[in-house]
């Protein structure tokens, strides 16, 4: 969907989305945004995808197929968290708030687990 990286040093993130907010549960997500940032922190590419149904397994597949390095989500079951960690994907979990603010914090490299944007 996103194609190959324009530069190997770029980073790609997948954000689980629901109504412009980070979706509250990884396994119930129906929309995602995949964004790519350059070494200078600028967003180079950002795409929005609607999923045909909610499935944690399908999301894991998308994350691997799209070469995503990092995931931003709300609640996530330990099993999928461990699986993604095993696949070397960093997961920022328990994130609550508008997607825009999360993406900006990720872009600036200041996003941490459990952040609540009010």
């Amino acid at each position: 969907m996103m194609g190959s990286y324009s530069y190997p040093g770029n980073k790609r993130v997948l954000i689980t989305v629901g109504d412009h907010q980070v979706s509250f549960r990884f396994d119930m997500t129906l929309e995602v945004i995949i964004a790519e940032k350059g070494a200078d922190g600028s967003i180079l590419n950002e795409k929005y995808f609607l999923l045909p149904g909610s499935s944690a397994e399908e999301l894991c597949n998308i994350i691997q197929n799209e070469n995503v390095h990092e995931v931003i989500c709300g609640g996530i079951e330990d099993e999928y968290y461990q699986y993604l960690s095993w696949k070397k994907v960093a997961v920022f979990c328990n994130i609550i708030g508008p997607v825009e603010k999360c993406l900006d914090a990720w872009r600036r490299g200041v996003l941490v687990d459990d952040t609540i944007f009010r």
Binding site: R25, G75, E77, D78, C93, N94
Partner: peptide, 8 residues
């Protein structure tokens, strides 16, 4: 429910 500690 999924808890903060990632339990279902």
């Amino acid at each position: 429910i999924v808890t903060r500690q990632k339990q279902k």
